[in-house]
Amino acid sequence: MADKNQGLIDQKWHELNDDGVDRRGFLKCMAWAGTGLVWTMSGGIPVSRAFAKNTGKSDGKDGDFSFVQISDSHMGFSKPANPDVGATLQAAVDKINGLAQPPEFLLHTGDISHLTKPEQFDTVDQILKGASAKDVFFVPGEHDVLDDNGKSYLERYGKNVQGAGWYSFDKRGVHFIGLVNVLNLKSGGLGSLGAEQLEWMEKDVKHLKHSTPIVVFAHIPLWTVYPEWGWGTEDSAQALAYLKKFGSVTVLNGHIHQTMQKVEGNVTFHTAMSTAFPQPQPGKADSPGPMKVPAEQLRSLLGITDVNYVRGQHSLAAVDSSLE
């Protein structure tokens, strides 16, 4: 395992060198390295890579674990961008089951279904049953709350949640917060958390020690990626203000069907690939609609995010892997 990790480090540094990262880019990478992530640019897209110093070194030590984020399954979508989203979700599950360090659980950051239909949720639930990790924690995407304001989503996934579906839980000393930012959207606006949820969140984190690692997950990015396409959340600044006192905050989002990362102070933001279809880079197309790519390229643009928590590390390390 140790050799493998060293190999990964070498490979990543090799890739960095090969990517033609200039001095400025290299310094950025160093900044990332300090927080457990290395930021490389691949085809103009920032791609997260584990800075593998301790990543994956799970030797049974109490506290070290990993989980996997999957996102945007869009079950029911059947347009040319991906006529078989069931097969690609299954490929994601196969990928998860093949990970060297089995994840303890999965996070699904929304757009489980394409049209909020029971049979679409059923299919996803069925496919995810095949994953080695049995626990799946969901938050809704806007495609999961169509027409019924989230009623059917809550009936299925809302057992231990508050309000419109937000909740928190603790795993091995890490505090996880699942947020809902896809309801009550205002004309011309972005994603929205709303006053009730913000109030709950403030109370939820109040009692926690500053040293508690925090993971926040929600569908629409909680940082402004590209407001012209609605890729942001209008009241996320308030939510992040409640997290200022914590040393390590990792924010995991979906919605934009591509990986992006940003570090701002104590907070690392990360978006995941979809398991269904890719979307264009911000502003690089007429609209954020599904991006059609040659069939043989599709699976290289879909994927999962493996997140490693190593006790004593400042931050969590996220590794994005495509389906092939």
Binding site: E142, L185, S187, P227
Partner: peptide, 12 residues
Amino acid sequence: YPYFCSIHPKMT
């Protein structure tokens, strides 16, 4: 009568 797409509220 102003209107929008409630899923993609940037559409007005």
